[in-house]
Write a protein that binds this DNA or RNA. Structure first.
Length: 164
DNA sequence: GCCAACGTTGGC
DNA sequence: GCCAACGTTGGC
């Protein structure tokens, strides 16, 4: 018997998506409301997917690089990891010449959108003391996938319920 | 469009 | 292994 290496992993995550590429509406409109989370090209984010994220984990679907950045919906992790095929496609902006199908460098997993929420803006997130430690709020943060503490998830759930 | 912050690359 | 240069992210 081996202990499950993911047994004590965080259960909640924030995942950034540029709405021009894939918005919460796009994800909800996809077959099975599920989209492959393509384009992660950062080792820390990749390692979260590979080593810590589990099917069923809660996801805050965050819109970034847009006029109003913020949390736009709730989703869940819907698969384990597999190679991200865009890394092998020279025509893709996510192409990586140093990767090969025999030794893929970049992974993805499926994310299933559950519902759209009101836009919980970055500015509003910053106003709440209980969320101050969130990675996405830290100065200079660029990581596209970050763990969310259960307490933070609960606070955000309450904010979304309070006024929607 | 600006620019601070960060990650990666590559010369040494 | 150091670290300067470079490219990217992403809020504003």
């Amino acid at each position: 018997m081996h202990p499950n290496p993911k047994a004590h992993a965080p259960r909640y995550w924030l995942m950034k998506s540029e709405p021009d590429e894939c918005s919460i509406d796009d994800a909800l409109a996809a077959p099975g409301q599920t989209v492959p989370w393509t384009g992660v090209r950062n080792y820390q984010a990749r390692n979260f997917m590979r080593d810590a994220m589990q099917v069923g984990d809660g996801v805050l679907f965050y819109h970034s690089s847009c006029p109003e950045p913020g949390i736009a919906g709730i989703a869940r992790v819907a698969s384990g990891v597999r190679p991200d095929s865009t890394q092998f496609d020279p025509a893709s902006p996510y192409f990586d010449a140093k990767s090969s199908p025999g030794k893929p460098r970049w992974l993805l997993l499926d994310v299933q959108a559950l519902r759209k929420t009101r836009l919980l803006t970055l500015a509003e997130l910053r106003q709440h003391p209980h969320l101050a430690a969130m990675r996405v709020l830290q100065r200079g943060n660029r990581l596209s996938i970050t763990p969310v503490e259960p307490g933070e998830w609960a606070v955000i759930g309450a904010l979304l319920q309070a006024q929607s």
